[in-house]
Simulated scan of single mutants.
Amino acid sequence: MSFAIYPYVRRKGRGLKSTLLDLDGRSWLLGGLLSASLCLSFGVAGLLEGVGAGQFAAYVDPAIPIVLSVCMAPFPAATIAHAGREILQIAPPDLDARVDGIARDVAARHGFVNHRSYVTKVGRAQFIEICFVAPSAATVKTLGEFDAIRQEIADAMGGRRPGYWLTVEFTADPRWI
Rank of each mutant, 00 (worst) to 15 (best):
L38S: 09
G54A: 09
G163Y: 05
T139G: 05
T167L: 12
R160C: 09
S18R: 03
V133R: 00
A36H: 05
G123S: 07
V67R: 08
A36Q: 07
G52V: 05
L34V: 15
T171M: 06
V140I: 08
P65E: 01
R14E: 14
V106P: 02
G159P: 00
F3D: 08
A58N: 07
A108S: 14
A4Y: 08
A138P: 09
A107T: 04
T167D: 11
R14L: 13
R11M: 13
D96N: 14
A77N: 10
I80C: 05
S37H: 06
D147R: 08
R124W: 08
I64Y: 01
A148R: 06
V140P: 06
W28Y: 11
G43V: 02
S117V: 01
A107I: 03
W176M: 12
R109L: 08
W176F: 13
G31I: 06
V133A: 00
V44K: 01
D105I: 06
A156T: 05
A154R: 11
G50E: 09
D155L: 08
P135I: 01
S2K: 07
C39W: 12
S69P: 01
A36C: 11
F170Q: 04
A78S: 14
I64K: 02
L23T: 15
D105V: 08
L95E: 04
A4P: 01
F56A: 12
A154K: 07
D100T: 04
S37L: 10
S35E: 09
T79R: 09
C131V: 11
F112E: 02
V51Y: 09
D155T: 10
I128Q: 00
I177R: 14
A4L: 10
M157R: 04
L20H: 13
E129R: 13
G46C: 05
W28V: 02
R14D: 12
